[in-house]
Design a protein around this nucleic acid. Sequence first.
DNA 1: TTGAAAGCGCTAACAC
DNA 2: GTGTTAGCGCTTTCAA
Lengths: 335, 335
Amino acid sequence: MKNKATIKDIAKYADVSIATVSRYINQSRQLNPDTAQRIKAAIEHFNYIPNDNARALRSKNERIIGIIFPDISNAFFANIFKSIEELLFEQKIFVLLCNSNEDGEKEKEYLYRLLQKRVDAIVIAPTGANHELLKEISRTTPVIIFDRKQEEIAADQLYANDYTACSQLTEHILSRGHHQIAYVSGTANSSVSKYRYEGFQQTMAKHGLTSEHYYLITTQDEAACRQEFHHLLMQNQISAALIPSPKKLNWFLMERNQLFLKGYRSALSFAGFATPAEFDISEIPLTGVLQREDIYATKLAKIIINRLNKPNSKIKDVELKLSFHKGNSIGKYGI
Amino acid sequence: MKNKATIKDIAKYADVSIATVSRYINQSRQLNPDTAQRIKAAIEHFNYIPNDNARALRSKNERIIGIIFPDISNAFFANIFKSIEELLFEQKIFVLLCNSNEDGEKEKEYLYRLLQKRVDAIVIAPTGANHELLKEISRTTPVIIFDRKQEEIAADQLYANDYTACSQLTEHILSRGHHQIAYVSGTANSSVSKYRYEGFQQTMAKHGLTSEHYYLITTQDEAACRQEFHHLLMQNQISAALIPSPKKLNWFLMERNQLFLKGYRSALSFAGFATPAEFDISEIPLTGVLQREDIYATKLAKIIINRLNKPNSKIKDVELKLSFHKGNSIGKYGI
DNA sequence: TTGAAAGCGCTAACAC
DNA sequence: GTGTTAGCGCTTTCAA
């Protein structure tokens, strides 16, 4: 590939200095119409496109951020990305998208690489493995922690009221008479899973129900997890399942549909955390906590853009209040 | 945020020249162990991280590519991204992910911005609106055209045998006796949709079936499209539906499940193009063309990496041969 | 309104 | 082994 034209080529061709060309490009000063015309012609002649990196090196304004998500094929994160991308595009901000794959080492490596690229900010839904590193980075580079709250880090954070929401959901299940409950653990180590589980556990404890009264499913693997759901739907011991993750709830609904279509009607009640997609595909009105990606995305984009424009503004710590929808998927116990 | 340390700071602190620091960082030469030790200490003292942009400016090696996809929330593209990201990560290549949203203007703007960033390559599943621009860009920057073949552009291309695969699928439907068929159009303007439609249409024509013998659904909007599917499933005029897009096939399966669960058993046969996910969620073995994202991704990554390492190597034009799976979703006509 | 020159943070050729 | 120096492509004073 041949070398691209530089500002020098333009200057020489238009018979002006490079400073003048720069002024033309940035429209930072009035130029003699004649000069401007010559520069314009030169730019067209060479198909000149300014080098943004050289520009950034000089003027310290990258207009690039890095986003580290644990799993971009997870519809929740994919939808978040899509939504904020739109808002960032308008602000002429580029995104280096990184997939940590829930792997602490990979996440760490990405953090270093993003720092080398001198991104204007790092948005991250952290694995939890690099807590100290994030704390340190946040002292010199804007860090925005998304979805998974990190305690004791002085950075913008946006997360949900996971503890409370899950606690309320548990209360509801109990109020319908269920006392043998299956609980499906979320991603290991993530704060989201932790808080939701605490919400569940402590609410159970409040009602005198200990770990003997619930059945914990900790499998993360899709096939194995669906196998567990299968068993759950076929038996009668456990009367309700609490699935506090849209992705796993989706698997559950798939599994349930399969059985349903084969003619098996399970009596198992269920509830969980869901995005609009799961509410949509469930044929029975879902009882659960709705996580609207568009709301997350709008708030997240706002925080990002604000941080870039006002690097020294006060740190934001936003807890999204998720609302709890009462459907029919939790039946009255025994009926 | 305070300014980051530069190579100068390190040099001064370690009492060496910046060249020596550079050598230490790049391990490009043997250093006196003592000197190396002092530099190491200085780097730790300042928490120094080299500026990759300055480096790239000098040595012309960005190790960044741009990817423009039409819809990253589409599971097909999200999975492709996830898979190639893994391979690119190993090669220390960053990705600027751009969502064209099927919008030609936005795509055009992204193309210019990527050129300004001097990306090493542009990977694009084009809307089709910027054909000429792409042709021009491909003369100076490596362009890799994915999924949607663009005629007459001298760039690496990876796409599927859409015409043939869809033609075979149509043959199969006809061989089972169906002659009143619904065809669901894909994305407007995309070459994928075009070739698949031609495959369908010409195969129909070969059997003497013209546009009177099939019912075309062109809606792109999700709700409206599902509404159409609903009608289709409830009536008896049309006996088979051909849905040549995983995304829409997914909507179709959802709609079908809803009806099924409500007790309605539709006699409609159906087939389409599907990723493993759709094969998985369909309770009846699906008849259709399987699009394995992992295969696309592996080939795509290989092309990208090869192009970056050998910019002048011969242009690759790869047609993926999609295989056609015979399930049970196309019943024998009248049964 | 324009040009000359310094310099952003780094690499690489050349010298010692 | 290490330092000096030029320069990547651009912006931004400072002069004129």
